[in-house]
Design a protein around this nucleic acid. Structure first.
Length: 831
RNA sequence: GCGAAAGUGGCGGAAUUGGCAGACGCGCUAGAUUUAGGAUCUAGUGGGCUUCCCCCGUGUGGGUUCGAGUCCCACCUUUCGCACCA
C-alpha cells in the first residue's frame, strides 16, 4: 500500500470500475424507499466554476448518504442548453454554430463533472436543446394553448436593446436586463404569454407546504406576487356616459377622496378631453410621460407630475364632484389604471395634492390624538389606524370595522365589489432569438392561429440560419421554416418564428429525469408517483423568483392536467451561498477566479470537495482559501496513514470485540467513535451542516492518533482500531468518494463502500462512567470536579460544597440558594 | 423609507434546548525527526495581569435571570430583498 494518498492513480482506477459496474444507476429495489435529490442543472458555458463545484458537492454528499442509508436514490444531471450565450459566441467567433458550441461545452463540462467523482446516473442525462426534450416542451405549450393557459396578446413589454429580444417582467431587475444589465425599453408588441396569474393565489397559498424553504425566498416570492385585498369602486363621470372604475385597498376612506387620477394611457383620457380646450395639453403630457423612462416613472423618489383633464367624477356615497387628473404615478398595468386619491391618508396622494394644491379631507382620526386632525396641521399623510370622521353613518367606526361594513353596504348598493388584486403579471415567453425552442404555432389566413398537432411535433429548429440579431426572430428569414401548411385546412400557412424563453425549458426538466427515454409522453405518471416531488433541491438564491416561481407554476399546470399528483416540485430547498475570493464574488473582471480544473489537477477531487464543504455551512457564503485546501488535503492523508501505517495489524483481525474488559483508553476511543457517528449522522442527515460533520470526523481521527501515541510501548487493540477505521471510512465516503473506496478495499472489504450501509451508533457506548461537572459561585466557574455519571442531585451539591476551593469562597458568606443542573453544574449563590 | 438576515480570536468558523465561549481547520510559536528544506509527529496559541490566581471578553448601551453569544428593549454597522402596485 502507498504511504500517501496518490489521488491521480486512485481516481483513475475507480472511475473505470464505477463506470463498468454502473455503480450509480438509479436504484429500483422495491423494498427500499425512494429519494430524489437534485441540483440546479447548469447552463453549458464551457467550464465549471467554483459555484458549480460547491452546489454539486453538496448534492453528491446527500445522494451518497441517502444511498448508504438504504434508499433508492435518483440523482440525475443535465443541461440547460438553449440560450443566448451560444448565439453570442457564434456571432463573435463567426465560424461556430450555436449547436456545435453548446455540444462541445457539454462534452467538456460532463468530463469535468465526472472528474469530480459525482454520483450521477448518466443514463438519465437530459439536454433541453435536443429534439427529444424540446419536443415535449412544445407538447406542453400546445396543451397549455388548448386549455387557455398560453395566449397571445398585444401589450407594452420590456425590450432589451442589447439582447434584441423581449423579456419577462421577472427578467427585469432595476429596470435593467437581468442577463446583460442593459437598461430595458418599452415596446408595444404582440407576444405569447403563460397565464401564471391564474395561479397567483395558489402560488402564495402553497408556501405553507414548503416548510423547509428559506423564509427569505418565500417573502421574495410573496412580494413579487403582491396580493392586496380591496374594492373595485365605480364612479360615474359628469357629462360622460361612462363609468370610471378604481381599485382601492382603503374603501373606508372613500369619503376622503378629493380627486381622481387616471394613468396617462387610460382609455377614458381621450373621451374626457376630446374637443375640449384641455385636449392638446393632455396629449402633450401623455407624450411626455411616455418618453419618461419606466425607472423614473415608478421610483418612489421621483417627482410626481400631473394635469387636470377638465372632467369630474361623482363620489357614489355623497354625490360630491371631484376633479379627474392624469398623473405619471398611476400605472395602467396595475388594478384598473385609475385611482381615487385620498391625500389625507395616502402618502403618494398627499405629496401630489400638496404639489398641485388639491384639497385634503381628513376622514380617519387617530385614536391617540386628543384634538381633531385637520389638513392644515398635517405634514404627511396619516396611514395608521383610528376611527372614521366626516363619513356620515360610518363615523366612529374603526378602520377595520368600517372596511367590513362599507364593503358589505357598497356591494349591496352596487357601488363596488370586494376584489383581490395581484402585482404578478402573466409570463411573457416569446423571444426574438434563434437558439431556443420554436413555438409550435402556425398562422393560417383562413383558420387563424393553429397549434401543431401532437403527431407533428417536434417543430424542428432549423440548422442553417443567419442568426445575427435584428430585433426580429432570425427564423423569419428561413423560408422553408416559415412557409408551411395549416394543420386544420391544409392550406398555405406561416409558422410562428419566435422561440421560447429558456426558463420554459428549465421549468419542467426535473420531471423529464423521471422518465427521460419515454417517446410516448413527457413522463409516465407512474414514475411521478415513484419519485416526484424532488425531496431535496439545491441551488443558488438568484433564482428565488425566476426559475423557482416558474417551476412551481409549471408543476401546478401539470398537476391540473392530471399528469402528476404533486402540487409543488421541490419539498425542500437548500439555497447555497456564493464562493468568494478576497471577500468578493469570483469574476473575470475582478481577476479573482480560481479555476476548479487546476484545483482538481493539483489536489484531486476528494480534497477539493472536502474543503468546499468544510469551509462554511452550505447556505452561507464561502471564502476560498488555498491554505484551507491544503488543510483538507492534510486531513485526508492523516486518515490514509492511519490505515497504511497499521495495515499489517489490521489485516490480521476482524472488527469484532467485547468492550467489557477494555482499558480506559480503549473505552474512551470506543466512545469517541460512537459520539462521532451520532454527530455525523445528524449533521449530514438532518441539519445539512457538512462543515461540522467533517470536523466531527477530524476529532475522531485526532482521538485515534492520541490513542496510538499513548500506547506506543503497549499492545494496540487492532480489533477496535479496525472497527474505528472502517466506520471512519464509511462516514467519510460521501465526502471523499475516491480515497474511501480505495481504503475500503485495503481494509479487506468486498464491494463498493458506496453500496455499504451507513454506520449506526450505540446509545450505550455514548455513556460515560465519570463526568466532569462545573461548580459556579454566583454564576462564575470556580471549580470543576469529576463525579460518577449516575450521581444524584444531593450528592452533586454535597461534593461541590466539600471542595476546598469552594469553601474558600464561602467563608464568611451566606448561601442564599443553590441551583443544580443534573450532570452539568452546581451554582452556589452567596451574599 | 420598509422588510429580512447577520455582526464571536490574526483568519474560516463552532457552541443544536438559557448552563465550562472559541470545537474543528488555517495561521503562528516552540520542540522532536531530518545533512538541510519540505513532509510528519508532540506541545502551546482570545486579551490583560502582580502568571496557574484573578480580571476582562461574542457590534454598542440597557434589561430579564442564580446564570445570556443565545431571551427582551433601544441603537450602530454590513449584506440582501422591496421600494409610487393604489
Amino acid at each position: 500500500m502507498q504511504e500517501y494518498f496518490n489521488f491521480d492513480e486512485v481516481e483513475k482506477k475507480w472511475t473505470t470500475r464505477w463506470h463498468e459496474e454502473n455503480l450509480y444507476k438509479t436504484g429500483d429495489d422495491p423494498n427500499k424507499e425512494n429519494y430524489y435529490v437534485l441540483e440546479m442543472f447548469p447552463y453549458p458555458s464551457g467550464n465549471l466554476h467554483m459555484g458549480h463545484v460547491r452546489v454539486y458537492s453538496i448534492g453528491d454528499v446527500i445522494a451518497r448518504y441517502k444511498r448508504m442509508q438504504g434508499y433508492n436514490v435518483l440523482h440525475p444531471m443535465g443541461w440547460d442548453a438553449f440560450g443566448l450565450p451560444a448565439e453570442n459566441a457564434a456571432i463573435k467567433h463567426g465560424n461556430i454554430h450555436p449547436q456545435e458550441w453548446t455540444w462541445k461545452n457539454i462534452d467538456n463540462m460532463r468530463r469535468q463533472l465526472k472528474a469530480m467523482g459525482l454520483s450521477y446516473d448518466w443514463d438519465r442525462e437530459v439536454t433541453t436543446a435536443k429534439e427529444d426534450y424540446y419536443r415535449w416542451t412544445q407538447w406542453f405549450f400546445v396543451q397549455m394553448y388548448n386549455n387557455g393557459m398560453a395566449y397571445k396578446k398585444e401589450s407594452t413589454v420590456n425590450w432589451c436593446p442589447s439582447c434584441d429580444t423581449v423579456l419577462a417582467n421577472e427578467q427585469v431587475v432595476n429596470n435593467a436586463c437581468e442577463r446583460c444589465d442593459t437598461e430595458v425599453e418599452s415596446r408595444d408588441l404582440e407576444q405569447w404569454f403563460f397565464k401564471i396569474t391564474d395561479y397567483a393565489e395558489q402560488l402564495l397559498e402553497d408556501h405553507k407546504l414548503l416548510d423547509n424553504w428559506p423564509e427569505k425566498v418565500k417573502i421574495m416570492q410573496k412580494n413579487w406576487i403582491g396580493r392586496s385585498e380591496g374594492m373595485r369602486i365605480k364612479f360615474s363621470v359628469k357629462g360622460v356616459d361612462e363609468e370610471l372604475e378604481v381599485f382601492t385597498t382603503r374603501p373606508d376612506t372613500l369619503y376622503g377622496a378629493t380627486y381622481m387620477v387616471l394613468a396617462p394611457e387610460h382609455p377614458l383620457v381621450k373621451d374626457l378631453t376630446k374637443g375640449t380646450e384641455m385636449e392638446s395639453k393632455v396629449e402633450e403630457f401623455v407624450a411626455r410621460v411616455k418618453r419618461q423612462k419606466e425607472m423614473e416613472r415608478t421610483s418612489a423618489e421621483s417627482d410626481k407630475m400631473g394635469l387636470f383633464t377638465g372632467g369630474y367624477a361623482i363620489n357614489p356615497v355623497n354625490g360630491e364632484e371631484i376633479p379627474i387628473m392624469i398623473a405619471n404615478y398611476v400605472l395602467m398595468s396595475y388594478g384598473t389604471g385609475a385611482i381615487m386619491a385620498v391625500p389625507a391618508h395616502d402618502e403618494r396622494d398627499f405629496s401630489f395634492a400638496r404639489k398641485y394644491d388639491l384639497p385634503i379631507k381628513v376622514v380617519i382620526q387617530p385614536e391617540a390624538r386628543e384634538e381633531i386632525l385637520t389638513a392644515a396641521d398635517m405634514d404627511e399623510a396619516y396611514t395608521g389606524n383610528g376611527y372614521l370622521i366626516n363619513s356620515e353613518e360610518y363615523n366612529g367606526l374603526s378602520v377595520t370595522d368600517a372596511f367590513a361594513k362599507m364593503g358589505k353596504d357598497f356591494e349591496a348598493k352596487g357601488i363596488g365589489n370586494l376584489e383581490v388584486n395581484y402585482r404578478l403579471r402573466d409570463w411573457l415567453i416569446s423571444r426574438q432569438r434563434y437558439w431556443g425552442t420554436p413555438i409550435p404555432i402556425v398562422y393560417c389566413d383562413d383558420c387563424g392561429v393553429q397549434p401543431i398537432p401532437e403527431a407533428d411535433l417536434p417543430v424542428k429548429l432549423p440548422h442553417d440560419v443567419e442568426f445575427s440579431p435584428t430585433g426580429e426572430s432570425p427564423l423569419t428569414t428561413v423560408e422553408e421554416f416559415v412557409n408551411t401548411t395549416c394543420p386544420a385546412c391544409g392550406g398555405a400557412a406561416k409558422r410562428e418564428t419566435d422561440t421560447m424563453d429558456t426558463f420554459v425549458d428549465s421549468s419542467w426538466y426535473f420531471l423529464r429525469y423521471l422518465d427521460p427515454h419515454n417517446e410516448a409522453e413527457p413522463f409516465a405518471k407512474e414514475e411521478s408517483k415513484n419519485w416526484f416531488p424532488v425531496d431535496q433541491y439545491i441551488g443558488g438564491i438568484e433564482h428565488a423568483i425566476l426559475h423557482l416561481l416558474y417551476s412551481r407554476f409549471f408543476t401546478k399546470v401539470v398537476h391540473d392536467m392530471e399528469l402528476t399528483d404533486a402540487v409543488e416540485p421541490f419539498t425542500n430547498w437548500l439555497a447555497q451561498g456564493m464562493v468568494l475570493k478576497d471577500g468578493a464574488k469570483m469574476s473575470k473582471s475582478k481577476g479573482n477566479v480560481v479555476d476548479p480544473e487546476e484545483i482538481l489537477a493539483e489536489y484531486g477531487a476528494d480534497t477539493a470537495r472536502l474543503f468546499i464543504l468544510f469551509a462554511s455551512p452550505p447556505e452561507k457564503d464561502l471564502e476560498w482559501s488555498e491554505k484551507g485546501v491544503e488543510g483538507a488535503d492534510r486531513f485526508l492523508n492523516r486518515v490514509w496513514r492511519l490505515v497504511s501505517d497499521n495495515l499489517a495489524g489490521l489485516k490480521k483481525v476482524d472488527a469484532d470485540y467485547q468492550i467489557d474488559n477494555f482499558s480506559k483508553e480503549e473505552k474512551s476511543l470506543h466512545r469517541a467513535l460512537h459520539v462521532a457517528i451520532k454527530k455525523v449522522s445528524e449533521d449530514v442527515g438532518e441539519r445539512l451542516n457538512f462543515n461540522t460533520a467533517i470536523s466531527a470526523i477530524m476529532e475522531l481521527t485526532n482521538e485515534v492518533y492520541s490513542y496510538l501515541n499513548d500506547r506506543k510501548s503497549k499492545d494496540t487493540n487492532y480489533q477496535l482500531l479496525k472497527d474505528v477505521m472502517e466506520k471512519t471510512v464509511l462516514m467519510l465516503a460521501p465526502f471523499a468518494p475516491y480515497m474511501t473506496e480505495e481504503l475500503w478495499e485495503e481494509l479487506g472489504q468486498e464491494g463498493s463502500v458506496h453500496r455499504a450501509s451507513w454506520p449506526e451508533y450505540n446509545k450505550k457506548a455514548l455513556q460515560k462512567d465519570e463526568i466532569t461537572i462545573v461548580v459556579q459561585i454566583n454564576g462564575k466557574v470556580r471549580d470543576k470536579l469529576n463525579v460518577p455519571a449516575k450521581i444524584s442531585k444531593t450528592d452533586m451539591e454535597e461534593k461541590a460544597m466539600d471542595r476546598e476551593r469552594v469553601q474558600e469562597y464561602l467563608a464568611g458568606k451566606e448561601v442564599i440558594k443553590t441551583i443544580i443542573v443534573p450532570g452539568k453544574l452546581v451554582n452556589i449563590v452567596i451574599r
